[in-house]
């Protein structure tokens, strides 16, 4: 009997050790420098509120940590979509001037590999910028650093929350250099292709309700064939 107990204790210890190695893996760092930082192309920065209650609409399976918004919004609980969530947000520039509306579809990715420090999400942006046109963005995002640095500390905290200042790039592909792919749809972006990077900035997180203070930022490298006035932002007001 004592051998069995020793064996079981050993297995538990080994499992815990392995999980600790994954958690403290020094090679799984947070990405803070955008791959687009070295690009000489003009960049379009679209900011949005990433807390569900501050979005135009947020929906998921209705049983996840983050509650859908607004009230009585239809939940996507069916088997094929229950591991997905949809955000509809107002997009603004760096100074907070509204520029347009974006719909973001996110789904847990089957390419997720915890051994490689990956918690992947396949996401799509469908963006409408009045006066300019539309964009379609494909991204593979990695939330490993976000989970490790914010979600887990909030869970183990006696206050069930996390506060601090965290900025990280979630975009991890599908392009080799870790950027997302962008296709122009209509308007001045029609026919164009470029790259994007999405960044999250978090200052408060609740283990009970999810993000409490979080903003997102999608940076799109504008293609060179964009008209010369491509940097003229059209304000909505």
């Amino acid at each position: 009997m004592k051998y069995v107990i020793s064996l079981l204790l050993g297995v538990v210890t080994g499992t815990a050790l392995f999980m600790a190695m994954l958690y403290f893996n020094p090679f799984a760092g947070r990405i803070e420098v955008s791959p687009l930082a070295v690009s000489d192309q003009e960049q379009l920065v679209l900011r949005y509120e990433a807390v569900a209650q501050q979005m135009l609409l947020y929906t998921n399976d209705g049983e996840s940590l983050v509650a859908p918004h607004p009230v009585k919004v239809e939940e996507i609980w069916e088997p094929t979509v229950r591991d997905s969530w949809v955000q509809v947000v107002e997009l603004s520039n760096a100074s907070g001037t509204p520029l347009g509306v974006g719909v973001k579809f996110s789904s847990e990715s089957e390419a997720t590999r915890p051994l490689n420090a990956q918690a992947l999400v396949d996401s799509i942006w469908h963006i409408y910028l009045p006066g300019r046109g539309t964009l379609f963005v494909e991204q593979r995002e990695n939330y490993w650093a976000y989970i490790r640095d914010i979600v887990i500390p909030a869970r183990v905290s006696s206050a069930d929350s996390w506060r601090g200042s965290w900025i990280g790039i979630t975009t991890a592909g599908p392009n080799q250099i870790g950027t997302g792919r962008v296709w122009g749809g209509s308007g001045e972006f029609a026919g164009s292709q470029s790259e994007s990077v999405e960044t999250l900035q978090v200052t408060a997180y609740s283990a009970v309700n999810g993000p409490a203070a979080m903003t997102g930022s999608l940076t799109v490298s504008l293609p060179s064939q964009t008209p010369e006035n491509g940097n003229d932002e059209v304000e909505l007001d």
């Binding site: 204790l9 080994g14 051994l115």
Partner: peptide, 28 residues
């Protein structure tokens, strides 16, 4: 026996994470 169990736990967890996909989207 404890050391053997520890090694078993390390290898077993690694094998589990490698071979069992954490996400399996339902398909129609």
């Amino acid at each position: 026996m404890f050391s053997f169990g520890t090694i078993l736990g390390l290898i077993g967890t690694a094998a589990l994470l490698h071979f069992v996909p954490p996400v399996n989207q339902y398909r129609e």
